[in-house]
């Protein structure tokens, strides 16, 4: 049963709430030991998909297995071997750090739980604060506590729903180092995020919008799939340029990045003809670059937005 080399293997999942379809034909395959990033705008269905995979929600249609267990009939087995970190901190704020971890240990029927609890607290570096209420912890520490609690039962699969939202860069880096360490030990990770740098630390990414998968693959594959040609312009009056170019239907996106402007189009000709009038203007300096992950991301997002408006 567990011979499936894919930790997550779901096909054509659909889910609607109160008649509104939020997930349409989502198929995801994640091989064991890989870190997959799950990207998409707010409300695109990332959380719902994660909940469908771990059996917290039941799909209306589709099929699939998680860790070799059927997601419809065997969610108890999936739960026992999966660590799920919710978007919102969901541990008991009126219990101490230690009590929370002990509780989790007992929920997963861990034998000799005391040792494991001690070990987890030690690894967390919270030995001196173990009797502090979890609700009193700062955002970063809450994330670390949640992660420690999620991996306490040594799961085979880790589902992380925007684990680093609102966490400072140092804590985020530490968090990701930990994720990579776990993946190296064979843990499979599916992590949803809005951060580009985090997406770039994943083996592959899945991009979802309006409940449908738009693209998936490695970073370079996703950028290639966007088919974007990008010109970067620096200069003095970028705001004026931005306002003008944004109205140009030949361009896919125009986005400011610090002191420069990224101008993207679906093909080279469109890009060249659109920026043509400004290329020789001495106020601006132009360079052609390959599209960045963020260009692709913004492009997918605005495309999805357009599609949504059209379908309305």
């Amino acid at each position: 049963m567990n011979s499936n080399p894919l930790a997550i293997d779901v096909k054509n999942l659909s889910k609607s709430f109160a008649g509104k379809q939020v997930i349409k034909d989502v198929s995801i395959q994640v091989p064991r030991g890989k870190i997959f990033g799950f990207l998409g705008p707010n409300g695109s269905g990332k959380t719902t998909t994660i909940r469908l995979i771990c059996g917290l929600l039941t799909a209306n249609s589709g099929s699939g297995t998680c860790l070799g267990y059927d997601i419809f009939n065997n969610s108890e087995n999936i739960r026992a071997k999966t660590g799920y970190m919710t978007q919102k901190f969901s541990f008991w704020e009126d219990l101490t750090i230690k009590e929370n971890i002990e509780f989790v240990a007992d929920m997963y029927s861990i034998k000799n739980s005391q040792e494991r609890v001690e070990e987890a607290i030690h690894n967390l570096g919270l030995k001196d604060r173990e009797n502090q209420l979890a609700g009193k912890l700062s955002g970063g520490w809450k994330q670390r506590l949640a992660l420690a609690a999620c991996i306490l039962h040594k799961p085979d699969l880790l589902l992380l729903d925007e684990p680093t939202a609102g966490v400072d860069p140092k804590a985020r880096r530490d968090f990701w180092d930990e994720i990579h360490k776990l993946a190296a030990q064979g843990l499979t990770v599916l992590v949803s995020t809005h951060y580009m740098d985090e997406a770039e630390r994943c083996n592959e990414i899945i991009y979802i919008a309006n409940g449908q998968i738009v693209t998936k693959g490695t970073i370079s594959e996703v950028i290639a799939a966007s088919g974007l040609y990008t010109a970067v312009v620096k200069g003095s009056n970028l705001n004026y340029l931005r306002n003008t170019l944004e109205k140009d239907s030949r361009l896919a996106s125009v986005a400011p990045f610090g002191d420069s402007l990224h101008v993207c189009a679906q093909n080279k000709e469109a890009l060249e003809s659109a920026i043509g009038p400004y290329v020789n203007n001495s106020e601006y300096s132009w360079t052609y670059e390959t599209a960045s992950m963020e260009d692709a991301f913004i492009h997918f997002m605005s495309q999805a937005e357009k599609k949504r408006k059209v379908s309305k």
């Binding site: 771990c54 917290l56 999966t82 799920y84 919102k88 969901s90 541990f91 008991w92 704020e93 029927s109």
Partner: peptide, 13 residues
Amino acid sequence: ERSTMENLLAMPV
């Protein structure tokens, strides 16, 4: 309300 239910449900209890 405190969304700990989601966590409890995700555990094999």
